[in-house]
Design a binder for these strands. Structure first.
Lengths: 166, 166
DNA sequence: TTATATACGATAATAGATGTCGTACTTGAA
DNA sequence: TTCAAGTACGACATCTATTATCGTATATAA
């Protein structure tokens, strides 16, 4: 299944929460976990990961917590997913980064290069979406691009795929 | 992790194999499993699923096997993934189809509509890729669109994301 | 009638995601 | 100087989905 991790969701919600927060006050793991009902321990781990990857900064001690290190406008979903879940790899033999662990069938299935390309396209797709787009509005900007996206498809597919979305 | 099922891979390889096969001869599960080294039982199940969803046709009995029911040119990756893995849902609360099983946080995280939109975009993305593109060449057409894709990104992101891909 | 196929359900094994626990360290404020 | 509220971090338990295996029934060409 093509699915995001739950921690990625938690992280996204936390980032949005921090971005909307007035003033420069820090946000604690407890605050996020209480507000959204996420398990505290996991929320804490998620925020630590966000901090380890440089997306937020931590302030230790009482009155401590986390603050955004970068604007949501500067972070793409591609970077975010990669920092939360590791390199994007739609199949094992196609890792966007570093050495791929490979696959016992590589060399026989003859699809490695194709999969690697597909993987790259997925990364590109995710990298075209800024977190600010996902956070700024309930009716996101992306929705208005829907028809544009359809416009990029093969002509013969349009009706077919519109039906799929219903 | 954003990842395809292994059965989806097996199915894709099998479809490509059938498409390349000369004449109208049927392809057995054994043939696919032998040729690519996939586990026989799973290969058989995968082909049955392809048949159940109407992507291929079966011929029972000795000398039986499977043949493509539709041209790879008429099938998009979106449809294929959906038929192999079920409705695309990047998060639980956002299913592209049918009733979503929901999420215990919905109503609190305030991101359902955003996630639903993201999900729709992923579906649209996958629906823009035809299986024939993935099967016809070792250096697929998609690769030549790479720069086009970059062109659709926010200007400020380009250098950033190019670095990501390295 | 036999060998080669598909058809299909039940179930086992594995891996990955998710959640829990325990403990140590840091710091502001009473 | 002590306490409460935080982060930091590793080990481990659990749950779930994927992946694989097994057994059996049915169809059909030779």
């Amino acid at each position: 299944m093509i699915k995001l991790n739950r921690t990625t969701e938690y992280g996204l919600v936390a980032m949005k929460h921090m971005a909307k927060k007035p003033g420069g006050s820090a946000t604690s793991a407890r605050e996020v976990s209480d507000q959204f009902g996420f398990p505290f321990e996991i929320t804490a781990k998620t925020l630590q990961r966000l901090k380890d990857t440089g997306l937020i900064q931590s302030l230790q001690g009482a009155r401590g917590g986390y603050v955004l290190a970068r604007s949501l406008d500067e972070i793409t979903l591609g970077e975010f997913v990669e920092k939360m879940e590791g390199p994007v790899a739609v199949v094992n033999c196609a890792s966007g980064k570093t050495e791929s662990p490979g696959c016992e069938y590589s060399g026989r299935c003859e699809m490695t290069s194709v999969m690697t390309d597909l993987n790259r396209r997925v990364i590109q797709f995710l990298s075209g979406i800024r977190l600010s787009e996902l956070a700024n509005s309930e009716i996101p900007v992306a929705l208005t691009r829907f028809e544009d996206f359809l416009g990029n498809q093969p002509e013969s597919m349009k009706e077919n795929e519109k039906a799929h979305l219903s």
